[in-house]
Nucleic acid binder design. Sequence first.
RNA 1: GCCCUCAUCGUCUAUCGGUUAGGACAGGAGAUUCUCAAUCUUCAAAGCGGGGUUCGAUUCCCCGUGGGGGCACCA
Length: 458
Amino acid sequence: MSAVRVRFAPSPTGFFHIGSARTALFNWLYARHTGGTFVLRIEDTDKERNSEQFVDLIYNSLKWLGLNWDEGPQVGGAFGPYRQSERAHIYKEYLEKLKAAGRTYEKDGATWFKLLGERHEVFDDHRKKTVTKVKVAPTVIDDLIRGRVERLEDEDFVIVRSDGNPVFHFVNVVDDIAMQITHVIRGEDHLSNTSKHVELFKAFGAPVPQFAHIPLILKSPEMGQGKMSKRDKGALVEEYQQKFFLPEALVNYISLLGWNPGDDREKMPVAEIVRLFELSGVNQSNAKFDGKKLANMNMTYLLEQPAERFLALAREYFATQPNNAAVTANEAYFREIMLLAQPKIKSIDDLGAYTGYFFTEDFAIDPKVKEKVMAKGDPKARLAELIAALPAMDFSSDAAIEAALKALAESKGLGFGDYQAVARLAVSGTNAGPSITSLFRVLGRERVQARFARFLAA
RNA sequence: GCCCUCAUCGUCUAUCGGUUAGGACAGGAGAUUCUCAAUCUUCAAAGCGGGGUUCGAUUCCCCGUGGGGGCACCA
């Protein structure tokens, strides 16, 4: 068996979305699993809709996801160039082969691919025009995921437009031949096109690659009906990058859309996915995208990040935030706060909201929380007692603070909770956060004291 | 309209003809806790319909139905 060569061939006509990422991932996984070659090819033949900005986005998204390519733009390879806009001479050469074989003709200024068989005219009432049908046997597609699929390809089709530009079906097949692609792994939306491609491969006398049409990713029920498109919220890889999702969490999640390891495992390191990935394990039905499950996956990854990685991500995140008080904060202070936040947040981009009050005295008091806290007992009195106790309190550790607070509560015949809620509100403006003892210790006596006083005065 | 394709909890999925149809996310309840999360326990939740084949079908076949995709001088 010859070495596996797969390709991911996006067209830079829009943003890079989850569906593209999954197609790229499955190609990459298969290449890595088999020790084959993963080729990146940019299908930029549609001059109208292409943009260099989208080309860069493809590179950036793939790199962010960790899907490195062995051949393609930026890295080169023996079958370049890897952008279709630079391969015109190759298409010309292949077109000549087809012409020489008598498989083309000119009509309306375009070049058409000629199917073999008897011709007859027929009126197509859906398209409302007369078309020429060719009497042919059905094209057989042997698909690694779908099984045997037959489709009647019975009309000649354009391969070079009247403006001289070759069309997708043609360049796609030429490139797959020229780049010696062995497995075409792509979305099921291409299954109907595949009969055209198979006929072209045969016309070139080239071996037909193995096809593997993977199921599509559909909108989640909240997003509506149909396949997920670039316009859907949450559909763009870029969004997750900007929200500082962990790329390995996204990769893990999308690997589970249409594939599974054959047992109950879901969270797996990518190396394990590579080890287990088989095309035969890819299922046939479309999957709906579930942002909640992705978010959960991201959280579980976040929880187990080593401190240094988490801190690096946190710094990257704060660097993009307009309020950069956290960026200029004392290094040790920043570190301590972030490590308190890590086990609590669901996503890196919660960090701003979750830790804001550590970095400014001008933090908001949540009115709903305030109402709730102030309704129970006599919180102002508790706060006054805390203020009185604070100067003598041992701030050296969480345990010391806890002991002091418990002693205070006990001396008044009250519970820890009677002090905790109001203290937290005064010091952070919210009811969510690290333990009150950590809050005291990290903020320090002076800040706590000042915030208590300010809260009482307000 | 024509062609292709798919069909298990709300969602992602397991099941190689015989299971109390399992797991995960989301949801409910509880435990734990100084709050909020996390965590743990627990509850609810599925074989689209109809025919076959078979001793026995979620599983195999057919027909419906429903979903998805495609039918360009887009990719």
